[in-house]
């Protein structure tokens, strides 16, 4: 079975690229890249503002993907698997919860984001996708799990399409590399080499 990459999305360094073409670029020195991207996309989704940065980033990456591939919204509602990884887990929100805790306060709106997989939930809610998901925590240099598990989900017919990649937001730095993969002979082959190369771009 050959999995081909049918869409690329990357966010970072003040820009958004879809299939390696820049679709949005913020001016140098821009603050709050994620809000700027939101305003450009204008999805009319106020829940965005309750999300932490990790979830905002993942949400926006998939919004761009669905904008490029509107037919993804027409797929069977459990056909799409979300398979993500990052290195810092939810440590940004964890730090915020800890800071508040040091002052004797615990906010449920902060605490709920102290789990990295919440980004999967936000994407699933937005798109009404009831499919498989997995969240791995590890460095960019080791993405074998993302490849092996996504392939096995599709091979075992637990999913037809994978939205897979690295989503990291920590200390104001945002880094997203997502691929759409499916069984097809077109597009670059989805494997550790192609995924690692894309992450290194």
């Amino acid at each position: 079975m050959r999995l081909g990459i049918t869409t690329y999305c990357s966010i970072g360094h003040l820009s958004v690229k879809v299939n390696r073409k820049v679709v949005f670029r913020a001016a140098d020195g821009s603050e709050d890249l994620l809000k700027l991207i939101y305003n450009q996309l204008n999805p009319a989704y106020p829940k965005f503002f309750k999300m932490d940065d990790l979830c905002r980033l993942g949400f926006l990456g998939v919004e761009w993907i669905v904008k490029e591939r509107p037919e993804l919204s027409e797929s069977e509602d459990d056909a799409i698997a979300l398979v993500f990884q990052n290195e810092m887990s939810s440590l940004q929100s964890d730090s915020e919860h800890q800071l508040q805790l040091n002052k004797g306060v615990a906010s449920p709106a902060t605490f709920v984001y102290t789990l990295p997989n919440i980004v999967v939930g936000e994407i699933a809610i937005r798109n009404k996708w009831f499919g498989e998901s997995a969240f791995f925590v590890g460095p960019k240099s080791d993405v074998a799990m993302l490849v092996d598990y996504t392939k096995s989900l599709i091979l075992n017919r637990k999913a037809k399409i994978g939205i897979v990649g690295f989503i990291e937001s920590f200390a104001g730095d945002h880094f997203l590399r997502l691929l759409v993969v499916e069984e097809t002979n077109s597009g670059d082959e989805f494997n550790v080499v192609s995924l690692s190369k894309f992450i290194a771009e």
Partner: peptide
Amino acid sequence: GATANDANHIS
């Protein structure tokens, strides 16, 4: 086994 998302609410 298998996993699936509620696609309903985060908590």
